[in-house]
Design a protein around this nucleic acid. Structure first.
Lengths: 211, 211, 211, 211
DNA sequence: TATGAATGAGTCTTCATTCAT
DNA sequence: GATGAATGAAGACTCATTCAT
């Protein structure tokens, strides 16, 4: 199988002045644009620089390589989404299955809002996906889902927990994308609810298996 | 989104003589090997030709371009898998939900047997995926799943049918791959059964909603 | 210190047809020209290709990378020179010190004939010098000098042999180049003879130290 | 041969205030460090500035370009070494050949103490070597060796003088480096003595040829 | 003076595809 | 039909140098 370089993605000086920060912002915006409009395989540093109205050198001033740019795009999306998700999944005022249902709908809707970008990002995953940084991001997400499952399946046998976490991870990483890919904006809720029904049905059965 | 060339993939003459057929076979075997072993981004016509012990020119004799090669690989897999699937889903001796469960397990197992190849193929999808041929293939699969759903949800309101087909399509196109990606050989059955439980639970509920 | 890649230099298909051989010849000629005229730091694959009236791709068809081109130039020079040197140093009809004197003059003269090229090659050494192939070439040369020293200092204590080989190696690898660099064509013989006198004086003293 | 820019290396103001002097010192120390540790081809102004804890702009405040930095490094080494050499070669209390022998050993030992730096500097020579300043430095060294030879070969025919100077120059410029390159710390004295023997043998013969 | 962000020409290398033999 | 040499556009990345602040 492939031998990705696993190059470091985050080095490079972090800008301190407003102007630089603006530049980074411009670059990221341009990068998102290029990725969205041209797709992963037309995503080149030159095009990003051009779109940002900046020299190639400036891109490399802030990002050690192309993959770091992709990683940053993914990371930003991920941080934002997982913040929202966390607040939903940890909300003590709702029963776990309701939280799950809300999380699913919310996640899919947010994914739908940026389908093209997410698809392209997912497409480009091999370029940035096999690095410590990305693994860390995934691990964080896993932990979050893990503690939710812990609560949801409190009385279920532990070996079921791993399975539940795995299934939810597959949902958040892949299924949601597929749904957005297939369904138009209206149908998205239909699919979300269907998936929520399936998950809730399955998990409530898991819970009752024990009591 | 991108402006893929959408070049025609199947034009080139279909060889009729034994020798040519053998050549095509060799090329496809080599292509599968290269894709499996080197991954999508190392998949080059030169490497395929070398592995096949054939000149690059010969590859182009039978495949109009690199994408056609990928398409053919995908198509072959797909035809083979859908044949098996069809026989399972149309088996009149089993109740629909049992067929579905069997189909799921079988599909995941077959996918697991060739994970590397399928992952690479999925990776390369943007190169061949946006063409009439591919869409036809998908449509065929859809039709098959559609008639199964027709039978399974005979009494359910028709708007549910579309949803059910969509969900199953997502499963066969993406979820199975995710499962194979995440779970090792032993866990694969765990995940398959969990998915089967979820689907069957959901669909039997859909059915009873009506009666 | 630096971390040269030590990439393989000799792979790539060896041309079989006359036409290809001619092309390789053209590329090498162009490479020598560029190196001679522009120096090591302007030696680029693009310039070589242009000078050869050939596309860049063609250069890479026969040489896996830029360093391989340099290595080949060096290697060709080296093989040719060492063939001549060998026939001189192994000539049984002459006493060893006479052979040495002849070898020195001959070597310097041949080096002088291509001073610019050799200087540039020496300049570029870090690019190709740290590889198995180059080490092999050096080892071959060493062996040749070694057996000559064996004969010349037959009766001297063995620890002197190593030293003598080292000194001669330094001569052939570096001093000759320095001489050519410094002296104009007429003076070259003066310097050669001076070096020969020094070496012969030193070695004959080593020999007599024993008897 | 190449068309080096031959840009002027020493223009820029020579700083007079303590702070600037310190800055220059820091830059030079950093430059030496980078050159020693990373080698000639990783020697970049950015790395020097970073190592010195100084901005790139500051480097350019005191050195008109990268080559000037290299030149200054070389020049400093050269001035220091030639001072020592001068005191040895002009020592009236020792017979000339003894002084030569001492000079050789001393020179090689000092070179060995900084092999990495000297090798890298020698490697980078094309970048700074073809300028008036460098030629002046060499001329100074030549003059020093010249007056030593004048004394050593007082009675020998003048045409021999030029040759002797040339040979010694080659030694100091190249052979010493080769010796350090080839021999480990212990062997360095062996080689030094061998070279000293060769030179002394040769030169004493030159002297006696006349008397 | 000092800073360091910005520039962009220049380098190596890959690979899909063509076409003369 | 078969071959495989030839092409050249395209891409990632570096680094000396400048200049606005």
């Amino acid at each position: 199988m492939p031998d990705e370089k696993n190059t470091i993605l985050s080095k490079r000086r972090r800008p301190k002045q407003a102007r630089s920060t603006q530049l980074v912002e411009d670059i990221l915006t341009a990068a998102a644009h290029v990725l969205r409009e041209q797709g992963a395989h037309r995503f080149t540093t030159a095009r990003v620089a051009e779109r940002a109205g900046v020299s190639i050198g400036s891109v490399y001033q802030y990002f050690p390589n192309k993959n770091a740019l992709l990683f940053r795009l993914q990371s930003d999306e991920w941080v934002q989404t997982s913040t929202v998700l966390r607040s939903i999944l940890q909300d003590p005022t709702q029963p776990p299955l309701d939280r799950l249902r809300t999380a699913i709908r919310t996640f899919v809707r947010s994914e739908k809002a940026e389908t093209d970008l997410r698809k392209a990002l997912s497409q480009a995953a091999p370029l940035y996906g096999d690095t410590a940084e990305t693994r860390q991001l995934l691990a964080d997400g896993h932990a979050m889902v893990g503690s939710f499952v812990e609560e949801m399946l409190a009385n279920a046998p532990p070996e079921k927990h791993r399975l539940a976490v795995g299934i939810l991870a597959i949902f958040f990483e892949k299924i949601a994308e597929s749904i957005c890919d297939r369904a138009d904006t209206e149908d998205v809720n239909l699919y979300s609810d269907a998936m929520a029904d399936m998950f809730c049905g399955y998990f409530s059965k898991l819970r009752s298996d024990v009591s």
